[in-house]
Design a protein around this nucleic acid. Structure first.
Lengths: 327, 327
DNA sequence: CAGGGTGTTGCAATCGCTTGCAGACTCGGC
DNA sequence: GCCGAGTCTGCAAGCGATTGCAACACCCTG
């Protein structure tokens, strides 16, 4: 159906090699022939078959992006960043959603690995050993996860948590609850650790409420336990969880921020629209996506290098869900 | 790096042909050899290179999914449906986001077309002629768009609008505003037409406020014009727009639903969390994604057929954003 | 006019895989 | 013991591209 190199060659009256060169190494061919080939190519609507090229050059011009859950608005943002950059570089993107399932993730990664030039793994749940194994025979860039010195783009969670605690402490909060994400989540870990340090530094109590699914429902589920801790403020694993908290607190007629202040993380679009609007740590998600592609592409150019992880700062966005504690 | 058929063959002590057959046409090879090949294959972690297979069989096992904007939660839902089904059928999915840009869409479609077996175009903005041209030499399934008799999965907008109008009319509304989506949007068109019919049938006035971007901002922008029409109820192109309306109305201290009832379309997760919770038409988004894959796969099996479009009904979800008009 | 560039083109091998065809081997029946 | 019919396996061609190498024409120089 689609035109092949041969068709173009035939039409232009040259060999396939010449067509190939005319299209990708133009200076190697005579201007006149080149023109003839070009017209032939686009009367036929010829587009090179990347798969075939990939077989020889080892570069298909395709990359893979694996992430836990597209329903979480955090990830589409990253995807958009990835897409934008990928498109500019003329590479196509496979996207795979693992549904927060480690086994699915490992499958998908393996399956994808052999048909792309490189892989971007966003918030992967698999363990470090597995990721290193994958990275051993595929070019991999991690996003929102650090494993030894695999190339990565991460957010500065520690600093973000410092900002959040500083904000709450300044308001006068002494007892802060922390609603963690999935147990397997690296970022949940990081955030927890950051919080521990920051609250020690500010002399406030931190109560770890445990691990919850990283969604609205997780927040709903955590809310009552948060209330039971007697904390006057709560920091949630992400905005979705925070919004779930908000909903459940509202349902129980516990006023936010009056009775309890709520802080989210991510700054998804939704959190500006919640009631009350959510105070959160804004993470540059699209930028992370873009940088991940850049990093991957550079790595593909010169594979030997081991670039240091890119660390992206977040910043505190104070909205309406935090205020002074009741006293 | 990755193991090839040859590596497996060497390890198992057979020819590549045998390996190929052992893996894809198991009954053609002796059980003993087959077993030997199998172990060899997975000690090597062998995964066939789909690109190479695709060159020969003409089937790469990859499909493409093109959509306008991942930041709109409607689309990730569809993507999840597509992914789920695709994964079950062992096909990988290229996802491309066009950013609501027709030119980008056409580029992406062309570029993708030659490296996949088929294409799913979700809410494409390109004109009918272009889509038909594409469909002429690639297997294409449309989602949320109807063009002649190209294979498609669509929602029953007319019926949805009927439900919305019936609901509002029953509440006593006589003057309903309609905030349309992008001018190029087929579904906006459909919804508008459905509304015209339904409001005629119910004897209510319909005021078309015009076309707006299909986001939160579009709703913000439309709100004042809606108010100016004097309508007591408004139906928005989608939930995002409806939530934008809600926000702007709130900012202007116009109480919803007291002063004006608001109805959205889609039922994205966010709309259950808005204040007030949004009355909307729920559309089976994931199901649409799944069915689109099924359709595409069937079409790939037997290309000659021209299946009738699948029409998916939506249903009215009454929440807190609609009530009787003030009188 | 011979010799050495330079510029342009084609031949043929190659990538990883599938598949038609034919060869080798086994087995049962006469 | 021989033949035909299966089974099972390997050879080799081919998919659509890229690319090293060689062939050729041409021009310039000495």
């Amino acid at each position: 159906m689609a035109a092949t190199l041969r068709d173009v060659a035939r039409l232009a009256g040259v060999s396939t090699s010449t067509v190939s060169r005319a299209l990708s190494l133009p200076d190697l061919v005579n201007p006149a022939t080149r023109a003839r080939v070009r017209t032939a190519a686009d009367t036929l609507g010829y587009e090179p078959n990347r798969a075939a090229r990939g077989l020889i050059t080892g570069r298909t011009g395709n990359i893979g992006l694996v992430l836990p859950d597209l329903a979480n608005p955090f990830f589409p943002s990253v995807v958009k960043g990835v897409q934008a950059r990928a498109r500019a570089a003329d590479v196509a993107v496979f996207v795979a959603d693992t549904d927060e399932d480690v086994a699915a993730e490992m499958d998908l990664v393996r399956a994808l690995a052999q048909q792309v030039d490189g892989l971007i793994l966003c918030s992967p749940r698999a363990d470090a050993a597995y990721l290193k194994a994958i990275a051993a025979d595929t070019t991999v860039v991690l996003v929102n996860r650090l494993v030894d010195d695999l190339p990565a783009v991460v957010f500065d969670h520690e600093d973000g948590m410092r900002q959040a605690v500083a904000h709450l402490a300044a308001l006068g909060h002494q007892r802060i609850a922390w609603v963690g994400g999935p147990a397997a989540s690296w970022s949940s870990d990081q955030r927890g650790q950051g919080l521990t340090q920051a609250s020690a530094a500010h002399g406030v109590d931190l109560i770890d409420v445990g691990h919850f699914p990283p969604h609205y429902d997780g927040g709903m589920a955590a809310a009552d336990q948060v209330v039971a801790t007697g904390a006057t403020a709560v920091i949630a694993y992400n905005d979705l969880v925070a919004i779930g908290l908000l909903a459940r607190l509202h349902a129980r007629s516990i006023p936010v921020p009056k009775a309890i202040s709520v802080v989210g993380i991510d700054d998804i679009a939704m959190s500006a629209m919640s009631h009350p609007a959510l105070t959160t740590i804004r993470l540059p998600k699209q930028q992370a996506g873009r940088l991940a592609v850049d990093l991957l592409l550079t790595l593909l150019e010169n594979p030997a290098t081991t670039p240091a992880p890119t660390i992206l700062p977040g910043d505190l966005l104070v909205r309406a869900s935090t205020t002074e504690p009741l006293r």
